[in-house]
Computed example of a mutant assay.
Amino acid sequence: MNAWFGHHRAAVGSAVRRLWSTPLNTLLSLLVIGIALTLPGFGYVVLDNLRDLGRNASGVQQISLFMNLDVGKKDVGEIEGRLRAAATGKWRFVPKEEALKRMQKSEGMAEIVASLPRNPLPDAFIVEPSNTEPEALEILRKEIAGWPKVAHVQLDSAWVKRFDAFLKLGKLALSMLAGLFAAGLVAVTFNTIRLQVMAQTAEIEVARMIGATDSFIRRPFYYFGALQGGLGGLLAAGLVLSGLRLLAAPVGDLATLYGASFSLHTPGVGEVAALAGIGALLGWLGAQLSVSLSLRKFD
Results as ranks from 00 to 15, higher is better:
D253Q: 11
G81D: 04
T189S: 01
E111H: 13
R82W: 02
T88A: 10
V45D: 06
D52K: 04
L31Y: 14
Q104K: 13
L39I: 15
L234S: 05
L19S: 15
F66R: 06
M176C: 13
A99R: 11
G232R: 07
E98N: 02
G252H: 06
L121R: 10
K96C: 04
G225M: 14
A236Q: 08
A248R: 10
A255Q: 09
L169T: 04
V113L: 05
A145F: 06
D299Y: 02
A145T: 12
M109I: 08
I193M: 10
G277W: 00
R18D: 14
A212W: 00
S130W: 13
H152D: 05
A10Y: 07
E111I: 02
K96H: 13
Y222H: 07
T189R: 07
I139T: 05
T22I: 12
A207C: 01
V269G: 06
L285E: 06
R118Q: 13
M209C: 08
G268M: 09
R9D: 07
K101M: 11
K142V: 03
L282K: 07
T22E: 15
E128C: 12
N56G: 14
V12Y: 01
K168F: 00
G77Y: 11
R245A: 04
S106R: 11
A3C: 07
G268T: 10
R84W: 06
T213Y: 01
A136K: 00
L231G: 10
G238I: 12
L227A: 08
K297Y: 00
Q154G: 05
S106A: 13
A158R: 15
I33D: 01
S175I: 15
L24F: 03
G41E: 04
I35V: 15
E78R: 10
V113E: 09
A248V: 02
R296K: 09
H265T: 15
N131K: 10
A3N: 14
S64Y: 10
L31D: 01
E271L: 03
L172Y: 14
A165C: 13
V32H: 08
M1N: 06
F93S: 12
G259M: 02
T256K: 00
M1L: 05
R218S: 01
A145G: 01
G279L: 13
A36C: 11
G230Y: 00
Q104Y: 05
